Amino acid sequence: MSVEIDITHGFDGLTLRVEAEVKGGLTAVFGPSGAGKTTVLNIVAGLFRPDAGRVCVNGRVLVDTGAGVFLPPAKRRVAVVFQEARLFPHLSVERNLLYGA
């Protein structure tokens, strides 16, 4: 798997700038609170639009603000599993992930 991220997004008093290329395997995003981890994941998943930039997964353009491309989340084939409970607290992580199937 290949993921290319080149995004910029402004917040009050802060500009998030991420340029990264990830190839293969499992990837973790980590850093201090407020560093922009969730924002980056939300942009890749299509839950948030950046001010400017481009995101590609396996050569497929998911976001390209210059070209006006913003693929909706349901068409991305990308998933984010959040730390806190988002679906059913009575189910295991595995059963929550398999629920949609």
Rank of each mutant, 00 (worst) to 15 (best):
V81A: 10
N58P: 00
F11Y: 14
I43Q: 10
V78D: 10
V3R: 00
V80E: 00
E21Q: 12
E21M: 09
R60S: 05
E4Y: 12
S33Y: 10
G34C: 13
L26M: 14
V18E: 10
S2G: 05
G53A: 07
A52E: 09
V81W: 06
Q83R: 07
T15K: 10
V63Q: 05
T8E: 13
F11C: 04
N42L: 02
Y99K: 02
T15F: 06
V3Q: 00
A74Q: 14
G66F: 01
A74M: 11
F88P: 06
L62Y: 06
L91E: 01
G53Q: 05
P73V: 07
R54S: 10
V93A: 08
G68N: 04
C56M: 14
A79G: 15
F48L: 15
G10Q: 11
L71H: 03
A45H: 01
L71A: 14
V81F: 07
I43H: 06
L71S: 08
R49G: 12
K75P: 01
A79I: 11
D51P: 02
L91K: 05
P32H: 10
E84L: 06
S33L: 12
E94Q: 08
G46I: 09
G10V: 13
V29A: 00
R76E: 11
S92K: 04
E84Y: 12
V44S: 01
A79D: 08
A45E: 01
V57W: 01
G59R: 01
R77L: 10
T39R: 04
R49F: 03
K23A: 15
A85E: 13
S33D: 14
T27I: 01
G34R: 14
G68C: 02
V93Y: 01
G25R: 15
A45S: 06
V93I: 12
A79M: 12
N96G: 07
R77D: 15
V81R: 04
D6Q: 13
E84F: 11
G31H: 03
F88L: 10
A52S: 11
G66A: 09
R60T: 13
Q83S: 11
P50L: 03
V55E: 04
N96R: 01
S92F: 06
K37H: 08
L14Q: 09
T8L: 08
R49A: 15
L41K: 00
G34D: 13
G46R: 07
P32E: 13
G53W: 09
V44C: 03
D51I: 00
L71C: 08
F70L: 08
K23W: 12
L97Q: 08
I5F: 01
V29Y: 00
K23C: 14
G46P: 05
P32K: 12
G13D: 11
A85M: 12
P50G: 04
N42Q: 11
F30V: 15
F48E: 12
A79V: 15
F82C: 09
T38W: 03
A28C: 12
A35K: 04
A79W: 05
L16R: 07
H9I: 08
N58D: 15
E94L: 09
V69R: 05
F48M: 14
L71W: 07
L14D: 06
E84K: 13
G66N: 04
F48C: 06
L98C: 02
V61E: 13
V3H: 00
L16P: 09
V61M: 06
D51Q: 07
G36N: 07
R60G: 00
E94W: 10
F48T: 07
